[in-house]
Design a protein around this nucleic acid. Structure first.
Length: 635
RNA sequence: GCUGGCGUGGCUCAACGGAAGAGCAGCUGAUUUGUAAUCAGCAGGUUGUCGGUUCGAGUCCGACCGCCAGCUCCA
């Protein structure tokens, strides 16, 4: 029974194995240790760090090394779990006090020593009792809990490296020395099994790569993410603020941020009208009874604010717009000829979020959804879903998000009481979403248990310039609300029928979407979105009057232009404009004034030389072409 | 909400339990400037809030508010 490693050797490929090469194998669909013995003649597939499974093996081994280091320095620490995660790994420990930065430095040092010692990592399978006794005798109560929950007949494996043994399904690298670049990142509290009723463990995050350059790159990427943080950029560029005096999670849009938001909204409105949507407006509060009928009071109460008393009647701040659109639907008898109705609203909603989850623009308590509800006949459902997918694709790509991942969110089949509506209705809804995805030939993954309480959904995650994911469009099919509100339309057969409802948002919320845009572009918005598109920079005071003329001319043409009239040197004002990420700087001095030109500098392309204001305008027009809302209507 | 860390001019950060500071930004003046920081001066603070310990609190203790890293949740 040769191991995977030996079978490599017999092929003369042993040199391909190692941190930079093959780190694990896959055999019969299962990822296994390179040291795992396989039947004679087995032909395993080999995995490197570049394969997600390979990276997992690599990082998971790093987690064990971390745990070994912690146990050496803090023998009383009880082990939780230590999986590989995207970009790294973590391990949870139950310790009497949280880890300090000094502890983390010592742990990293100890981990390095463990890597240098190059302990072989060995797997052994044991019986349930043996495993239980082993961890119980060491006081590893969490491991015992895990063992007790393993299903009947499950293989229980332990991995040994040096003096350290962990309960683990594996697989792992052949020895600790295969870990090349290893780094402890930070620590934070985390509940055992993510449940706040359980004890809080201390989680240490770390990461590992085969090459130091990759680790350096990762560290750089983290720093770049910090540099792009929308909370920081938002303050630096004077886009928005959040005030303790007003309350957490409530956003104030400053003039500059307001410009960006308005352009996004104008673009959004224009595109929706073009695609047959009607724009509607609805109130911010409604009677409690309405929310009882809609089901929100029963199913969504923990996210809603307490009722307010209005002349003895209770009202609620709206957390969603759907019941309002439904009331409008019911305001008259609908014919099959009226459908589909596509009603879109930039609806501001308020949701109670626990204080600890608030985060800049990404998680707030008041936000404006780019919401829409489509009321259609069952036979129109698939075509409408395809139309929504098409719109969603077009919109996000217009804002520079060219990569995204799609998830079909369905019910958790083991937990059906979490959802309202019958099985048949759910199956029909899930089927319609699936059919639309297939018709658009979009790749997707199925997320079991990811559905909302009232229906299944398609959730799209956008990938930004740093490869990070952002919540993007979501599309939900809802057979339930039409039922609850008894929505009907008159069919060709002169009988009442039940319409289907689609809830959808393309950008999510203005707050979150602008937050993601800020980080995606690092504050350097493309010209059509830039709060200030051009800044005129006079060389000396005597050029200010000409500079003002240029600003006025540009402003009349619809350009967002302004001047820097401060008594400073050109380089000072250039630097200021660069830091503000203004796309164009127009320097005007004696030469420009004499020839009625402007010297154009682009924030990333540099000096573009002198040109007439009209030539500059033509350049801007071309750059912003096809962006409704970006450019005010021109005479 | 929970665990841990943190809260000092608009921003970034100093200050052993013993006189609240610097740089940037702002304002005033000088300078009249040609593609990423000209010089000088001025102003700016009840150290998040409330209470306590102390001869004395930015510093120690408590509560609350807010922020940060997570847990959980989500547009």
């Amino acid at each position: 029974m040769p191991s995977a490693l030996e079978s490599l050797r017999s092929q003369g490929r042993e040199r391909e194995a190692g941190p930079h090469g093959i780190v694990a194998a896959r055999w019969q669909g299962q990822v296994v240790d390179l040291t795992r013995e396989l039947p004679e003649g087995a032909e395993p597939e080999f995995l490197t760090f570049a394969d997600p499974e390979g990276a997992n093996v690599y990082r998971h081994t790093a987690a064990h090394v971390l745990a070994q280091a912690v146990k050496r320095l803090f023998p009383e620490a009880k082990l939780g779990i230590g999986p590989a995660i995207e970009d790294g790994f973590y391990y949870d420990f139950d310790v009497p006090r949280p880890f300090t930065p000094e502890d983390l430095a010592r742990i990293e040092e100890e981990a390095r020593a463990i890597i240098a010692a190059d302990y072989p990592i060995r797997r052994r399978e044991v019986g349930r009792e043996e495993a239980r006794d082993f961890f119980a005798s060491r006081g590893e109560t969490y491991k015992v809990e895990l063992i007790d929950e393993l299903p009947e007949g499950a293989t229980i494996s332990l991995y040994d490296q040096g003096e350290f043994t962990d309960l683990c399904a594996g697989p792992h690298l052949p020895s600790t020395g295969w870990l090349a670049a290893f780094k402890v990142l930070h620590a934070a509290g985390a509940y055992w099994r993510g449940d706040e009723r359980n004890p809080m463990l201390q989680r240490i995050y770390g990461t590992a790569f085969p090459r130091q350059e990759q680790l350096d790159q990762y560290v750089y990427r983290v720093e770049e993410a910090r540099r792009r943080d929308h909370r920081r950029v938002g303050r630096e560029l004077d886009l928005f603020s959040i005030h303790e005096e007003a309350g957490a999670g409530l956003v104030f849009w400053h003039p500059r941020g307001g410009v960006v938001r308005q352009i996004v909204e104008d673009f959004w409105r224009a595109e929706h009208r073009r695609r047959g949507y009607d724009i509607v407006f609805t109130p911010h509060v409604a009677r409690l009874d309405l929310w009882k009928v809609s089901g929100h009071w029963d199913w969504y109460r923990e996210n809603m604010y307490s009722p307010m008393d209005v002349e003895g009647v209770e009202y609620l701040l709206k957390p969603m717009n759907c019941p309002f659109h439904i009331l409008m639907y019911r305001s008259q008898t609908r014919s099959y000829r009226d459908l589909p109705l596509r009603w879109a609203e930039l609806g501001t909603v308020y949701r109670y979020e626990r204080s600890g989850v608030l985060h800049g623009l990404l998680r707030v308590r008041g936000f404006t959804q780019d919401d829409a509800h489509i009321f259609c006949r069952p036979d129109q459902l698939q075509a409408e879903l395809v139309g929504v997918l098409d719109l969603a694709q077009y919109m996000v790509e217009s804002f520079g998000f060219s990569e995204y991942e799609i998830m079909l969110s369905v019910r958790d089949p083991a937990n059906k009481q979490k959802y309202i509506g019958s099985d048949e209705v759910w199956e029909a809804a899930e089927g319609a979403l699936l059919a639309a995805l297939n018709q658009k030939e979009l790749a997707y993954v199925v997320g079991e248990g990811e559905a909302k309480f009232y229906g299944p959904a398609i959730d799209i995650t956008l990938k930004d310039a740093l490869g990070r994911g952002w919540q993007g469009p979501t599309i939900q099919v809802d057979f339930n609300l039409p039922e609850r509100f008894d929505l009907t339309y008159m069919g060709e057969d002169n009988r009442e029928h039940r319409p289907v409802m689609i809830h959808r948002t393309v950008l999510g919320s203005m707050e979150r979407f602008l937050g993601s845009l800020i980080e995606h572009y690092a504050g350097a918005f493309p010209t059509w979105l830039a709060p200030v598109q051009a800044r005129v920079i006079p060389v000396a005071d005597r050029h200010v009057p000409y500079g003002r003329q240029v600003v006025e001319k540009l402003a009349r043409a619809g350009v967002r232009a302004e001047g820097d009239w401060r008594n400073e040197k050109v380089s000072y004002k250039i630097r200021a404009a660069q830091l503000e990420k203004i796309p164009y700087m127009l320097v005007v001095g004696d030469r420009e004034e004499a020839s009625s030109q402007v010297a154009v500098r682009h924030r990333s392309e540099g000096d573009l030389g002198p040109m007439s204001p009209d030539t500059f305008l033509a350049r801007l027009r071309e750059e912003c072409a096809g962006r409704p809302g970006a450019w005010p209507a021109m005479p």
